[in-house]
Computed example of a mutant assay.
Amino acid sequence: MSDFSNALSVSASGLKAQAMRLRLTSENISNADTPGYRRKTVAFNAVREETGGPEKVEVGRVRLSRTDPVDIYDPGHPLADDTGHYKGSNVDLMIEIADAREAQRSYEANLKMFDQARKMSSGLLDLLRR
């Protein structure tokens, strides 16, 4: 594989990983008020192909947060127990917004890297055509 192909594949793997992270963050935000919902997170792993190419980002398993859900007091809620409490979600909107912003910026950086590699390979092809 050429260096241009390597750069494109590395940035494409980063785009895929950050897109997954943004998807999970949006799921967490949309379910922040769902009783019993647990925050989802994903881990990234660096993997190298057997051919000795560059390290790429691989999306790991989706995991549920182990943080305890918030106890909410609402005696009129259908899920409330005898004491009037029910388990809310363990999603913190401030953390989710920060994660979404970080994932967005990482996605944009990978997109710029992809675009630069594409422009460079296009420029090289133009030079070779002359």
Rank of each mutant, 00 (worst) to 15 (best):
K119A: 15
G60N: 13
R66Q: 14
Q104F: 15
Y107E: 05
V70Q: 01
L24H: 06
I97W: 11
L111D: 06
A46E: 15
V10R: 05
S9A: 11
S26N: 12
N45P: 00
T51M: 08
Y73H: 12
S2K: 03
Q104V: 10
S106E: 10
S9K: 12
E108V: 06
L8F: 09
A103S: 13
T41V: 12
D115H: 09
T25N: 12
A100S: 15
L64M: 12
N31C: 03
M94K: 11
D74Y: 02
Q116Y: 13
K56A: 09
G52L: 09
S13G: 09
D68Q: 10
A98R: 07
E96Q: 12
K119S: 15
Q18P: 01
E50V: 15
R130T: 13
D82Q: 14
A117M: 06
S122Y: 10
T34Y: 01
S106F: 09
E102D: 13
S122M: 14
L64G: 08
A46R: 14
M20A: 09
A19P: 00
V62E: 14
S9M: 12
G52R: 06
A43G: 12
P78R: 00
M94T: 15
A19D: 04
M120T: 14
A7W: 01
G53C: 07
D71H: 02
G53A: 10
A7C: 04
N28Y: 06
